[in-house]
């Protein structure tokens, strides 16, 4: 069976096994490695992508389930790294090893879309499923708050 998935605006046809998690289709088949493997059980959030606009953990979504849908990965969040979250991440020097950060940013982007003015508690609640072993959480919080502030100013 053939599946059709639009990834970062580009249509892809594939005949891989429909049970294959989207994560491995992205990483191994399409070589879009910005989406990371961390746990394979939806526990760490490193593999987060947007599926028809909503943040999902791509280790838990199969290629079959993504059929006919639109996927955005970290590589497609903005054309040139100019999403306010990406800028805020740089301004706050958030990343240490950086491995979990694409997933953090993808969840944060979903949060700000749904809740443009999140409280500190809202941020912690939304980001609870994204683990960082380096311990960048204080900067993750600050970057999201900064980006929200930035977007508020820009969205007139």
């Amino acid at each position: 069976m053939s599946y059709s998935i639009t990834i970062n605006g580009q249509a892809h046809q594939t005949d891989v096994d429909g049970d294959m998690p989207l994560l491995w289709f992205l990483r191994d088949t399409l070589e879009l490695t910005g989406t990371k493997y961390g746990c394979g059980m939806g526990l760490c959030g490193a593999c987060t992508v947007h599926l028809d606009g909503d943040a999902v953990q791509s280790c838990l979504v199969s290629v079959g389930e993504a059929n006919g849908k639109k996927v955005t990965t970290i590589e497609g969040l903005s054309k040139d790294g100019s999403h306010p979250l990406q800028i805020a991440w740089l301004d706050n020097n958030v990343s240490q090893c950086g491995y979990c950060q694409p997933g953090q940013i993808m969840v944060a982007a979903d949060l700000l879309k749904q809740n443009p003015e999140p409280s500190a508690e809202d941020i912690d609640t939304a980001m609870e499923g994204n683990l960082c072993r380096c311990g960048t959480y204080l900067r993750v919080r600050k970057a999201i708050a900064d980006a929200a502030e930035q977007m508020k100013g820009g969205a007139k």
Partner: peptide
């Protein structure tokens, strides 16, 4: 600023697991 920050936020940093 660290020299490697910007590639991290766009998913372009190539870790050991990412190499092809």
């Amino acid at each position: 600023q660290r020299h490697d920050q910007d590639e991290m936020v766009v998913g372009k940093r190539i870790f050991g697991a990412d190499k092809k």
